[in-house]
């Protein structure tokens, strides 16, 4: 009896050691790879003290960049919100030829390099682009101006809301909406009283992710921005410009605001998952972005 117990005990000990080793390896990687960069942002921003940090943020360019970032997000996010709802409604409540292709198209911006997202708009609206001469003749500017920033942002954040809604609405099915119809509800009544309440948390979740990306987007807006200080520099572009001018404290000060936004987004996202997980079906959709 005791002879058999010894190897069993040893095996259990080995398995526990293996488990501890795996957990430690994962923890170590996450700390080194995720936490350390985050800590570095705040440490660099405060390197010369709180006063220098506040002064860097108080500069007028910083204010302009913050306002522009908020403006771009305030236009791009609602646009993609409406698109996401419309696309999800069509995709989950009806059968039509080419549905799989439409699904792939919605996902396309996620697999395109942000630089290419900017490039295509330059080719479309730039001085040598398709609509360039026409725009110039009418005194309109898209590239190196706010409309270009909005368009590039819309492109890269297009899938977020749709991607959250499609799997959820697919899983919910259309029976409640059919019930609303047999009870006499018209289209908008059905939408606002039945559909929208059922998808509200997933919608908020998608908007949250969409907004984080819209405010933090760098590559695509960098291509169409032209880097005109105070006019076409969003916060990430302001970070880049200050960094390239060796104003490290200034760059990290603005970066720390963006990092805060990321942390708030993560916290809100976790809260939503924890509180309304089954109404978001977040985990079932797998990888996002």
């Amino acid at each position: 009896m005791s002879a058999a117990a010894a190897p069993r005990g040893a095996r259990r000990w080995r398995s526990r050691a293996a488990r501890a080793g795996l957990v430690l390896a994962a923890l170590g990687f996450m700390a080194l790879f995720l936490l350390l960069p985050l800590a570095a942002v705040f440490a660099e921003a405060l390197r010369q003290g709180a006063r220098a940090f506040l002064a860097a943020i108080a500069q007028p360019e910083a204010g302009a960049a913050i306002r522009l970032t908020l403006l771009v997000a305030a236009i791009a996010v609602p646009l993609n919100l409406v698109f996401g709802v419309a696309a999800a409604w069509a995709m989950t409540r009806f059968e039509f030829p080419g549905k799989a292709l439409l699904g792939a198209l919605i996902d396309l911006p996620f697999s395109v390099s942000p630089v290419i997202a900017g490039l295509v708009y330059v080719l479309l609206f730039g001085a040598q682009g398709w609509f360039g001469p026409w725009l110039a003749a009418h005194g309109l500017q898209v590239i190196f101006a706010v409309p270009g920033l909005v368009l590039a942002t819309v492109f890269v954040t297009l899938p977020f809301v749709a991607r959250e809604l499609i799997p959820l609405m697919q899983a919910q099915g259309g029976e409640e909406e059919e019930a609303a119809r047999t009870l006499g509800a018209n289209g908008w009544q059905m939408f606002f009283r039945v559909t929208l309440p059922n998808i509200r948390w997933a919608l908020l979740y998608g908007v949250l992710l969409c907004n984080a990306r819209a405010m933090g987007e760098f590559g695509a807006v960098s291509v169409v921005s032209g880097h005109i200080r105070g006019l076409t520099t969003t916060m990430p572009l302001e970070v880049e410009m200050r960094y390239n001018e060796y104003d490290y404290v200034g760059a990290f000060a603005v970066a720390s605001l963006l990092a805060l936004l990321a942390l708030v987004t993560l916290a809100a996202k976790s809260l939503l998952e924890w509180r309304y997980g089954h109404e978001i079906a977040a985990r079932a959709t797998g990888a996002r972005r």
Partner: peptide
Amino acid sequence: ARARKVGLVFQHYALFRH
């Protein structure tokens, strides 16, 4: 369906969960 004045009880009831 809206105007038919039909009362339908769905198999899985389709109650409005909210």
